[in-house]
């Protein structure tokens, strides 16, 4: 099943990049896709626990929610930068996490970093180290809405 997703994604990528539909070029595309599939299979043997990211509808909703958050915090940070007094108060602290699967943790850490104002500096077994430009940013993370939404995705 996983190879099906990879094949579809690779074929889509080829068609977008080439933009030609001549049989010869589509044949080259099929050749490249199968070559990459062979390499992916070999890589799975080297990597004992191949990660699997199943595309699902909830992810779209999460990304839309995340974009809204990113826009809000971008505006906040832009205000701080143009303020002559530079009102930042950096904190560097630990944030306990409850999501366990590697995929969910990756998504969580990346979402935190993607939001301007908060930055994941280290990922540990049960907590992250977060650098934030203001105490409000870290309070919002402690509130845990982002983590609840990721937990609901069931990755």
């Amino acid at each position: 099943m996983r190879y099906l997703y990879v094949t579809v994604a690779l074929a889509f990528f080829w068609v977008v990049l080439s933009g030609h539909f001549a049989p010869l070029l589509l044949g080259f595309g099929a050749l490249s896709v199968s070559l990459v599939l062979i390499v992916v299979r070999r890589m799975d043997r080297a990597d004992r626990q191949p990660g699997e990211l199943v595309p699902q509808l909830g992810l779209v909703g999460y990304i839309a929610w995340l974009l809204k958050l990113v826009i809000e915090s971008n505006i906040d940070l832009a205000r701080r930068i143009w303020n002559p007094a530079l009102p930042i108060e950096p904190v560097w602290t630990r944030l306990d996490t409850h999501v366990v699967s590697p995929q969910a943790k990756t998504l969580y850490a990346n979402s935190i970093t993607l939001t301007p104002g908060t930055l994941t500096t280290q990922v540990h077994e049960d907590h992250f180290m977060i650098h934030a430009l203001s105490a409000e940013g870290i309070e919002e993370l402690r509130h845990g809405e982002m983590e609840r939404r990721i937990a609901r995705l069931d990755l």
Partner: peptide
């Protein structure tokens, strides 16, 4: 403008994310 490296990462992220 940012005072140290970690704060500058936030500023660089601003240009890239939005």
């Amino acid at each position: 403008r940012m005072p140290d490296f970690f704060a500058r990462v936030h500023a660089a992220g601003l240009t890239e994310t939005l």
